[in-house]
Computed example of a mutant assay.
Amino acid sequence: MKYVKLFALAAGAFMLTACSDDNDFNSASDVTVEMAKSEITVKENAGTFNVPVKVTGDPNGPVKVKIVVEASASNPALPFEEKEGKWSGNYIITSETINIPADEKTANVEISTVDDLEENPDRSFTIRIESAEGATIGSAATTVVILKDNDSVPYEKVQGTWNFSFNDYDGNPASWTMTIGGYDEGSKEYGNELYLSGLLGYQNELSLKFYNDEATGECYIEMELPEPFMWYNESYLIYALNGMSTAPGAIRGTFSEDLKTITFDPEATIVYYVAAQDISDALGVYDLSSNMSMTRQ
């Protein structure tokens, strides 16, 4: 996956650079290009985010901007790249060349974070406009990007991509790639609620309760079932049940000490049940997951 992603990014960079060859750049005077923000802070599990670039003036043609990334003096964030056969780093930049059409006043440097799953001090790097065609570089030529560590907070550390292994309805081993997501700091759900996406191999959301007992150090999630999580057709939903019962019940998953694995009771089973919004009107069992475990990817 990493190789595919990086190849796609490289191809995108080539396309962005090449498309400007057929255009005449802005020739109007008093057109400047700058970074729109002096500093941006994101969590290291943020995924993809944008750093804005702005154009002032009235250009009569496109503006091409070349940016460079500079490491900070203390605890610098590093680009995600291969060294001696091993991939490591903290961020990926989609392209260092930004083409801004004449009728646009803003553009973005697209960046993706790479979560290291380890506690560490916040890291940072600087994006600087190195050159511009069709504009002069203004005084605000840099943005400092701070990657805020999230791994000291269990609620945030458990968010990300997981491998969900189980036995299906026929008892055959199977697995899905799942995502545990959370809510923004300051919201009422933060620290208490999560959601699980990827059941049955589709994009959907199943609610999770999150518990972190600081006294015992135990950290776990609970699925409060039954809960509908996706449509089967126009009339019926797929519910997650606790076993073969439609009665309320919870399935608990307990995190390992390093928060990289989740174990479930060996007897726990999620049954995927097709029923109408009135759950008593049902078509029956679609599939199930037993002998479940989850491992962080």
Rank of each mutant, 00 (worst) to 15 (best):
G201T: 10
P228M: 05
Y232N: 09
L225F: 09
G243L: 03
W231A: 10
T254N: 15
L208D: 10
L206G: 01
E257A: 08
V271P: 00
S245R: 08
F264Y: 13
G249H: 02
Y239C: 02
N233I: 05
L225E: 05
A268H: 04
S235N: 15
E234V: 06
A268Y: 05
E227T: 06
L237G: 08
I270V: 11
A247M: 11
T246P: 01
K209W: 05
F255Y: 14
I262A: 01
F210T: 07
T254V: 13
Y202R: 12
D213I: 06
Y232I: 03
T246I: 15
E267T: 14
P226V: 05
Y273M: 02
L259S: 00
Y232R: 03
P266Y: 03
T254E: 13
N212L: 04
E214P: 03
F210W: 07
E218T: 15
S207V: 11
L225P: 01
Y236H: 14
A268F: 10
W231I: 03
A247G: 09
Y236S: 08
E267C: 01
L208K: 01
Y220E: 11
L206H: 04
L225G: 01
L200V: 12
T246D: 07
E224S: 15
Y239I: 04
T261I: 05
A247H: 08
D258P: 00
N212K: 03
I221M: 06
S235I: 13
G249V: 03
Y272C: 00
E257D: 15
E234F: 14
G217N: 09
N204H: 12
N204Q: 10
A250L: 07
Y273G: 02
L241M: 04
F210N: 02
G217I: 09
A215M: 09
K209A: 13
D265F: 06
L259C: 01
Y232M: 07
M230W: 00
E224C: 08
N212Y: 09
P226H: 04
L259V: 11
F255V: 07
N233D: 15
E257Y: 09
S245M: 10
M244I: 05
I262F: 12
F264E: 04
